[in-house]
Computed example of a mutant assay.
Amino acid sequence: MKTFELTGTKRSEIGKKATKALRNAEEIPAVIYGGDAKEATAFFVKANEVRKLIYTPEIFLVNLTLDGKVTKAILKDIQFHPVTDNVLHLDFLHVLEKKPIVIDVPVVLDGLAEGVRAGGKLSLDLRKLKVKAMYDKVPEKLHINVEKLALGKSVQVGELSFEGLELLNAKNAVVCRVQLTRAARGLAAKNAE
């Protein structure tokens, strides 16, 4: 997993007025929870510093510096404004050495499926899978080999297994499938005659 360096400043004032003043100064309110602390810690970060963390399909382990103390964390949730699409709030989760984390990992399909060679179309239904694992076992991407995937067949979550990871999606959820195209149906009907 890649790392991302981020510096935050603890918030002394909490409330609508203080939050609005932060957002007007192009700073994003945030919170980190979990870990040894019983309560969440409120802080803020500069909007331009988190752009590469937010607008990417990759996952990062964040080295978050608050008051000179570095904490390992992952970005758990992002709240966007419904109209302007500005970032309103960030939630970080404290990462511990001995406690597993739950995170969405991007899926990558490897190989050319048999069904595609036969005229089908490969579609990726789940772009990310929710996994539970120790933070150092989480890969940057989950690679799925689809070379043996025939026409009209699919790969479900229950058929997949990755070392050191527990998949939390529904077992019958379809990750990818090879669909029959109109051209392939027409060719099959023509050959049947």
Rank of each mutant, 00 (worst) to 15 (best):
I103K: 02
K99H: 10
K10E: 11
A189S: 14
M1S: 12
G120E: 09
K190M: 14
Q179R: 11
F92N: 07
E159A: 15
G35Q: 01
N24G: 09
A170Q: 12
K76C: 07
K10L: 15
G115W: 01
L6W: 05
L88F: 07
R182M: 12
D91T: 00
D77L: 09
Q79K: 11
L96I: 11
V138C: 07
M1K: 05
G115Y: 04
V107M: 01
G164A: 02
Q179I: 03
L142T: 00
I32A: 01
R11G: 02
K121C: 00
A184Y: 08
K72A: 04
N169Y: 08
I32Y: 07
P100G: 03
L90A: 07
V45S: 07
K38Y: 05
T3M: 11
Q79C: 03
A21H: 10
A40D: 06
K130A: 02
N48F: 15
L90I: 00
R127G: 08
D36V: 09
A73K: 04
A25L: 07
G120K: 05
N63Y: 05
F44R: 05
T7H: 06
V83W: 00
L96T: 14
T3K: 13
V62Q: 00
I78Q: 10
T71N: 11
L6H: 09
P82A: 04
P139I: 04
T56P: 00
I103V: 15
L187G: 06
K130C: 01
F4E: 04
L122A: 00
Y33N: 06
A170I: 06
A18D: 01
A30H: 04
S161N: 15
N24C: 08
K130Y: 03
A18S: 13
L151A: 01
K171R: 14
L149I: 08
L66Q: 07
T84Q: 07
M134V: 00
T7M: 10
N24Q: 15
K99V: 15
G111M: 05
D125F: 15
D36T: 10
V108E: 15
H94T: 01
L122G: 05
I144P: 02
G120P: 05
A21S: 13
V105P: 02
A40G: 15
K153H: 14
A170F: 08
K20G: 12
K99P: 02
L124W: 00
V178E: 04
K20I: 15
T56N: 05
I144Y: 08
R127L: 11
A183H: 12
A113S: 12
K132M: 14
L149P: 09
Q79L: 12
E114C: 11
A150R: 13
Y55D: 04
